[in-house]
Amino acid sequence: MFEFSLGVDDLATTWFTYSPLQEAVFSLRLRRHVDKYPFQRRWLESWEREYRMLDSALLDVLVTPRAWMADFLTPRPTFQRPSFESELAVVAATPPETVAKDFTAAYRGDGAPIPEPVASLLNDPAELLARCVAQLRAYWERCLLPQWWPRARTVLEADLAYRGRMFAERGAEGLFAELDHRLSWQGGVLRLDDPDPRVKALGGRYTPVAGRGLVLVPSLTSLGAHTVIDADEPPVISYPARGKALMGETPPPHVPDALAELIGPPRARLLALLDQPASTTALAHRLAVTPGAVSRHLSALATAGLLTRTRSGRSVLYARSPLGDALVAGGSEHHRPFGR
């Protein structure tokens, strides 16, 4: 069990963000455990050809058989919404001795032997680091950035907006209770109970946050909340992002005929999509239209009271209002055949 002790000041400096680099590194788990990520299967298939043109032998072994990985590959975010390149620069500056130590610790914790090509490069950790950085950048640019990341970022932004509302409405206890079943909050201590027997074998750890700030990071490939193993690292917890099933959604949801007749097909499609908060860019990507066209319809729906708007960083997230929910539900009822 991991325990994080938070005083009042620590709660005030607890914050949420997502990490593009963490999502890229964690996404390498998909290849080893594709059965555990049904919502990501089609994405994995879509970039298979590009992936095989990279140094897949190295990328494959950045994740151990039990899905552990070297801690230096996923540095703790230090500011809101970092870019992939800014985080990769942190990795590139990792001391060589840390590279060797973290790879050794990951495979030792997993209980598996260190495979090639990592094993032969441990005597030259600077070269191993350089190759990791180069291949992660290529993987990001060729496989994830074109289509996967725009969708992923939308889901992560929606999670951040939701957590902010929960914290404001229900406080720390309500917030932590919803993050993940592995987490519990009592008496100023946040507990993370990881069921992995190999994690349990490492023993418990009590970590006073002590003014360092606790960072909470949603992830699309986390099966449960987890933290770094190294007790010297600043406190950070990754947890499964809310709405990650949306990654498996291909077509926009069905639009009831009655709703389309009432407000027009384009606005009906947008209203049906917005059961989770999303930005103009993300909606345009999903509908394969220009952001300008989406923006015009969103403004009209918001003016009519069918949508709410929330600023999140540089983006504005739209979501259905209670009136919008009622309109969609009513349209669906009218669309059902008699006798159902």
Rank of each mutant, 00 (worst) to 15 (best):
L202D: 09
P277I: 08
G203Q: 00
P252T: 02
D232H: 14
P252E: 00
V215D: 00
G164N: 03
I263M: 02
H181R: 14
T221Y: 10
E261F: 03
R163M: 07
L175C: 09
P240T: 02
S219I: 04
D196P: 01
R205D: 14
D159W: 01
L156D: 10
E178N: 13
A245D: 13
S279T: 08
T280Y: 06
G171W: 11
A268T: 04
R198Y: 13
E261G: 07
P266W: 01
Y162M: 13
I237W: 04
Y206S: 13
S184H: 03
L220P: 05
A177C: 09
L262V: 06
D230H: 06
L246V: 13
S279G: 12
P208Q: 00
I237N: 06
V228E: 15
I263S: 00
V215A: 06
A172V: 15
L183W: 05
P277A: 08
Y206L: 14
E157Q: 13
R242K: 10
E261K: 12
T207F: 11
P251E: 02
P265C: 04
Y206I: 13
T154C: 15
H181G: 15
G211T: 03
M247H: 01
V217W: 07
A201I: 03
P197V: 08
A284T: 10
P234D: 02
Y239K: 03
L273I: 10
Y239I: 09
P256Q: 04
F176Q: 11
H181V: 14
H254K: 14
L216Y: 02
A282Q: 05
L283D: 11
A172H: 10
P195L: 05
I237E: 08
R205P: 03
E249F: 09
T280G: 12
A201K: 01
W185P: 11
T227K: 06
R267T: 01
P251D: 03
W185K: 09
L156M: 05
G213S: 04
A158H: 01
I263Q: 00
M166K: 13
T207I: 10
R267A: 02
V236G: 06
E249Y: 12
P195Q: 02
M247D: 02
D159I: 07
P195I: 00
W149I: 08
R151N: 14
A284S: 10
